[in-house]
Computed example of a mutant assay.
Amino acid sequence: MTRLCIAGGTGQVGREVVRQAILAGHQVAVLSRNPPAPGTPGHVAGVDYFRADVATGEGLDAALAGADVVIDALEGRSGKALKNFADGGARLLAAAQDAGVGRAVLLSIVNCDRSSFGYYRSKAAKERVYQQSGLETVVLRATQFHSLLAGIFASGSKLRVIPVFKGARFQPIATAEVASGLIDAALEAPTGMRHRARTIGGPEILGMRELAVTWQQATGSRGRVVELPLPGGMGKYLRTGDNLVPGERHGTQTFRGWLAMRTDSL
């Protein structure tokens, strides 16, 4: 039986990693700054939760004790969390190495090193930390999640506008399939390589307008689909198609199929 330590196991992808790992019969530890209390909706039976913080190193030793693999699904979207994102990764890896963990797996974003957008730059910086680690490391780069697009459309629809970025296409993937990819990377047999990277993309590439119409049909929103320019590093990243990996269509759940499973919550 493998013991997996999930850093960020209370986040969107981390929760799914935890769920799948428990169902598969693995031992699971979760490190989080705010672990859920027993009896609350976020608490999963059979999981060992630890209050820990990669920004300070507090609690890492206890969370990593006995772990075979650590899966890093942490996020740092703004403020100090964004600024210190790569440093937190280095602190986690150092603690994992001290604890005798055999492998570390990082969730990242496709071609994040080609974007000047701050969030993506932090992902690329963290990738470099993993590449330089003394541990065996795997970076899993994923395309954008179905939930990201649904969130963009839902936010705009509150103002009766469903935004579509000019020139943008997407290859969205389900977080459940990304979680499966992370677990597969954690459990695969040793390859003898110190560091490797792999990419996982959704099953189809569609224009953002088509995706918006699909979302509108699924939700019944009466907002107007409006094409808007997206400036800056993110706009360039999308217009040049750096968010796409046509040769890596490992996901199977389409955006339409994902929406159909979540009609009641959209």
Rank of each mutant, 00 (worst) to 15 (best):
M1I: 07
C5S: 08
C5P: 05
I6F: 06
I6P: 06
A7L: 12
T10W: 02
V18M: 03
V18A: 01
Q20G: 11
A24Y: 02
Q27K: 14
V30D: 03
R33Y: 06
R33S: 06
N34C: 09
N34G: 13
P35L: 10
P35W: 07
P35M: 11
P36Q: 13
P41A: 10
P41E: 05
G42P: 06
A45I: 07
A45F: 02
D48K: 14
Y49F: 14
Y49I: 08
F50H: 13
G57A: 11
G57Q: 01
G59T: 04
G59W: 02
L60Q: 03
D68G: 11
I71E: 06
D72C: 15
A73W: 03
E75Q: 13
S78F: 14
A81K: 01
A81C: 08
L82E: 14
K83G: 03
F85N: 00
F85A: 07
F85G: 02
A86C: 11
D87M: 11
L92V: 08
A94P: 00
A94H: 09
Q97L: 12
D98T: 15
D98I: 04
A99N: 12
V105L: 07
L107I: 05
L107W: 00
I109L: 15
V110A: 15
C112V: 09
D113M: 10
G118D: 14
S122G: 13
K123I: 10
A124E: 05
A124L: 09
A125H: 14
K126R: 14
E127W: 09
V129D: 06
V129E: 12
V129A: 15
Q131D: 08
L135D: 07
L135Q: 08
L140M: 07
A142F: 05
H146T: 02
H146K: 06
L148H: 04
L148T: 08
L149R: 08
A150K: 00
G151L: 08
I152D: 01
A154H: 10
G156M: 04
S157T: 06
K158I: 03
L159V: 04
L159C: 03
F165H: 11
F165A: 15
F170C: 12
P172A: 05
A176H: 12
E177D: 09
V178L: 06
A179C: 09
G181T: 01
G181I: 00
A185M: 13
A186L: 03
A186H: 00
E188V: 09
P190C: 10
G192N: 03
G192M: 04
R196L: 07
R196S: 13
A197L: 09
A197D: 06
A197T: 13
A197F: 02
A197Y: 01
R198Y: 01
R198S: 10
I200V: 15
G202K: 01
P203W: 07
I205D: 00
L211G: 00
T214R: 11
Q216S: 10
G220A: 13
G223Q: 02
G223P: 04
V225Y: 07
V226K: 00
L228F: 07
P231V: 11
G232H: 10
G235E: 02
K236V: 03
Y237P: 00
L238H: 12
L244K: 04
V245Q: 11
R249Y: 07
G251M: 01
T252L: 13
G257L: 07
M261W: 04
R262L: 02
R262E: 01
T263M: 08
L266A: 04
